[in-house]
Structure formats: C-alpha cells, structure tokens
C-alpha cells in the first residue's frame, strides 16, 4: 500500500463568476520514501491539489469528491481539529513558496521553530531548543547556535527557505509537500535547496511531493512525475521514462518548449495559446483546444489514464482502446455535495 493515495479528487471553488473546477478528478499515489513531482503551468491546479491533501482549502473552495488516503486513513473525513492535531506538522508538513511571509517577522527563527517542536512533540522547551539548533544545522544554516536567535529579516532568501524546511522537518514527518519552494530564489540558491531536498529524502527516508513548473527541478528531486493540465493529471511516469518517451501531446509540447542553457536551439516551436479558464473548461479532453493531435472525439470523450508503459500512464484518446466513458456532469457533482 502506498503512503499517500489520492483518488479522483475534485476541488471546486464556488465564486460569483462561476464554479472554478481547479482540480477535477486527480489521482496519484506516493510510496514511502518516494518523491513525486507535480508539474504544470500556472493555473493547472497543482497547488490546489496538494493543499487539498492537507485540508487547507478555504471558502469558497471545497473538496466536492474523491478521497485522500494517508497511510490508510481517509483525510477528507477528518475534522479541522483532527487534521491539525494528528496530521499537519507531525505526519505531513508543507513548505510554501514565499518563506518571508510564512515566517513571522516579530519572532526569532528559533522561537518559531521551538514552538512547532513543543506543540507537536513532548519535548521540554530546553530540549526543543537543542533540537531546533540541530535542525538548522541539518538544513545547512551556518553557525546555527548563533543564528537561531536572529529574526527572519536577518536571514537571506535562501536561508529563510532553509529555515522553513527545518520547520517542516521538526516533527519527522513522513511526507513533505513542497509547493514551488525555490521559484522565488536565484538559481545559485535554488541549487543548494535542491541538494538539500535530495539529502532529506535519503537521510530521513521521507516521502516528498514536489510541486513545480520547472522540469529541470523535477529531474533533480523527483523519482516520479505527474503532469497536470487544467485540473487533471494527463501523464504519470518515472522521470526518465517521461523525458525520453513522453506520450501525451501536452507533455511533448511542454518538453519541446523548455529553453535550457545547454542546448543550442535556433528556434523553439512552443505550443501556442493559453490555458483555458477553469470556470468553463473545454468539454472532453481539456487539452484539445491546443492539441496538435486533436480529433473530433476529443470534444465528446473525456480520456482516462491508460497504461502506456511500465508504470507509465497517459490520459489521451491516442492510447485509449475502450469506448466512451460516463463522466458525471458538473451538476451531478455539485448536487451530490449539497445533499
């Protein structure tokens, strides 16, 4: 059994402008000690998907369908208090993109770290401080015994992110969710953080769900990768397999449009257009409006994930032998949850 199993997750936002189908039938699983990358452009719903795991969806958002099983426990059925007490921080922790706003500027880094430790374990305050110094040392902050008493603004951007990671590690979680933790950082700083994630996974045997838009980053950190487009997972595979044999036209176009400093390309031919709004997504396959392989059926049939290789799935009619699927309509789903 996998450590985390997300099945057919749908998270919608009920806004005055309409129902935003941010996450619409997403499934993935993460084994113990494994790191999964979730890749997609902005608006693909990757952040919402991982926040749904932690129960961090706020009004007007709601998980309308699907299940999130962590170590066999159904997280969607837990109350807010149970989630806070039993899951967040001690079983699953999360690292956000913007460390500066996640750290409270009026407390020292140490006191915030100690608070998390005291809150979630039965350590005494003095033991918590020792542990805090140890953690800061683990995440590569120099002179941790001195820097623990500094305020967040005295840390550089990279160190703030390291402090956030220390906080996430504080209670030895079994799963760390990293939501674009290096997007705001310089590449030189990012390189260090990526190495840190690798190290954490090795030494702590922690599972990692790493959300990013950068395939290069995924390659550094992740064993497996799920590609999301407009609220759905279009392809999942071990990273190398995905890079070498991308099956879904979206994945192919994504790989095609990456500019890297190591290749000499005179002309990149990226896919055009932009992602449609999640308020009124296209029917059938959501990528069809930009898909070079789109055929008539793509309008009517919602493709399901099909096995296309060894632990490699893609949701595209190109690889789908079976006949049409019955997908619940939006009305049916929302009615269900209103009951």
């Amino acid at each position: 059994m996998s450590l985390l199993e997300v099945e057919n997750l749908r998270t919608y936002f009920f806004t005055p402008a309409g129902i935003v189908q941010a996450v619409d039938g997403v499934s993935f699983e993460v084994d113990a000690g494994e790191s999964l990358g979730i890749v997609g452009e902005s608006g693909a719903g990757k952040s919402v998907a991982v926040k749904s795991i932690m129960g961090l969806i706020r009004d007007p958002g709601r998980i309308v369908e699907g299940s999130v099983r962590f170590d066999g426990r159904e997280l969607t059925e837990l109350s807010e208090a149970e989630l806070r007490r039993e899951i967040r921080g001690n079983e699953i922790s999360i690292v956000f993109q913007d460390a500066m706003s996640a750290l409270n500027p009026v407390f020292t880094v140490g006191s915030q770290l100690e608070e998390v430790i005291v809150e979630n374990t039965d350590r005494s305050p003095s033991a918590a401080r020792e542990r805090a110094i140890e953690l800061l040392d683990d995440v590569g902050i120099p002179n941790p015994d001195r820097r623990i008493d500094e305020y967040p603004h005295q840390y550089s951007g990279g160190m703030q992110q390291r402090a956030m990671i220390a906080m996430a590690l504080a209670c030895d979680p079994r799963l760390i969710i990293a939501d674009e933790p290096t997007t705001a950082l310089d590449v030189t700083i990012q390189a260090g953080i990526l190495e840190l994630f690798d190290e954490i996974q090795e030494t702590h045997d922690t599972s990692i769900v790493y959300v990013t838009h950068d395939l290069g980053v995924v390659r550094e950190v992740c064993d497996r990768v799920s590609v999301m487009y407009l609220g759905r997972v279009v392809e999942s595979a071990p990273y190398e397999e995905l890079y070498r044999y991308p099956k879904h036209p979206y994945t192919q176009s994504l790989l095609n449009s990456v500019v890297t400093p190591d290749e000499i390309l005179d002309e990149i031919n990226p896919i055009g257009g932009t992602m449609p709004s999640a308020v009124s997504p296209p029917s059938g396959c959501r990528f069809r409006t930009r898909c070079p392989e789109a055929v008539e059926e793509c309008v009517h049939v919602t493709p399901r994930a099909r096995q296309v290789g060894d632990s490699h799935t893609a949701a595209c009619l190109l690889y789908d032998e079976s006949n049409s699927h019955e997908e619940p309509t939006l009305r049916e789903i929302t009615n269900q949850t209103n009951d």
Binding site: L194, D214, T260, P261
Partner: peptide, 11 residues
C-alpha cells in the same frame, strides 16, 4: 541551472 535532460549533468 537545472536541466531536464537526464543525460546532462545535474545542478
């Protein structure tokens, strides 16, 4: 700079 190509050296 991270490179998605697994054949290239990592960061």
């Amino acid at each position: 700079v991270p490179n998605p190509d697994p054949d290239m050296p990592g960061v």
